[in-house]
């Protein structure tokens, strides 16, 4: 048969391991700092979300749905949220929400400047765009690997993996938004003697806000999808419930948890899409 010859071997697994070892050893402080920052954020967001009583979430969501769409949407959305509570998954949902929110915040903090840089620099665009394309075609669980390598198990690697998986669309849509601002509007801004910072904050970002919001929405959806997979490396939350049910073959429980994830995703999607639409109407 045509077997690949044994003597033709060139494995890269070993050098990779070596590099990782080296990085862990020498960049220890940096990884520790990242871990600390993320934990602080986690605790902050979690304690904030936990003070809000459950019924306030439901009422608040009803009002948001009503303002963004109509009364019917408000009712449906708040019913979905109620269902999650009825399933006994409320606390786990909050936990999942914390991971998603932090991933989205970190994505915005990193993605917004990156997208702007790409719009401003042809070179940056040429380097970053193919990387983003590559990231978007990679299977999601591949992202777990580097996260485990550098941060072992727990919520920190889960957030890292979720963020790296979800950030691409936000960067792309920020880039798209900034680079397609109406040319005459840009010229008008320049013609009044705006500095480049004023151009950015008074014209370019506000003008691409609806595109950026669409990016935030897509990033949130991807973070929701990744959160389940991240439970494989120790993220608690509803995703973990699904994982446990799979292991124990508890079909009903697994389905229930799955449904809760879908509800949460729909709720987040509708809120973000509604706000993006409101922004677009302005433009």
């Amino acid at each position: 048969m045509f077997e690949f010859p044994d003597f033709l071997r060139f494995e890269i697994s070993e050098p990779i391991d070596k590099v990782v070892q080296w990085m862990l050893l020498n960049w220890d402080a940096a990884f520790e700092a990242i871990r600390r920052i993320i934990l602080v954020m986690f605790n902050g967001v979690e304690s904030f979300l936990s003070i809000i009583p459950w019924w306030l979430y439901i009422i608040g969501l009803f009002i948001i749905g009503w303002k963004l769409y109509n009364v019917k949407a408000g009712i449906i959305l708040s019913m979905m949220l109620t269902a999650i509570g009825l399933f006994g998954l409320w606390d786990l949902m909050i936990y999942t929400l914390v991971i998603v929110i932090i991933s989205v915040i970190v994505s915005i903090l990193i993605g917004l400047p990156t997208g702007i840089l790409m719009a401003k620099s042809e070179l940056a665009k040429k380097i970053i765009m193919p990387i983003l394309d590559g990231m978007q075609t990679m299977p999601s669980f591949v992202y777990l690997l580097p996260a485990i390598m550098f941060f072992s198990f727990g919520r920190v690697p889960a957030i890292i993996a979720t963020t790296t998986y979800a950030i691409a669309p936000l960067i792309k849509l920020t880039y798209l938004g900034i680079s397609t601002v109406n040319k005459e509007v840009i010229e008008a801004g320049k013609s009044f003697g705006s500095t480049s910072m004023q151009m950015l904050f008074k014209i370019e970002i506000p003008q691409s806000l609806s595109s950026i919001m669409t990016g935030v929405n897509q990033t949130t959806m991807m973070a929701m999808a990744m959160v389940v997979i991240s439970s494989m490396i120790g993220a608690e939350g509803i995703g973990e419930q699904v994982l446990i049910s799979i292991r124990r073959l508890e079909v009903g429980k697994g389905f229930q948890a799955g449904l809760a994830i879908v509800f949460l995703a729909i709720i987040l999607d509708r809120i973000l899409q509604g706000s993006a639409k409101k922004l677009k109407e302005r433009a």
């Binding site: 109406n182 005459e184 509007v185 010229e187 008008a188 801004g189 320049k190 013609s191 009044f192 003697g193 500095t195 008074k202 014209i203 506000p206 003008q207 806000l209 302005r282 433009a283």
Partner: peptide
């Protein structure tokens, strides 16, 4: 910058207004 701020202003064909 000074020239554009103090001496010369421009009006555009498609208005160039800031929609936000």
């Amino acid at each position: 910058k000074e020239l554009r701020r103090n001496k010369v202003a421009m009006v555009f064909q498609h208005f160039g207004l800031l929609s936000h």
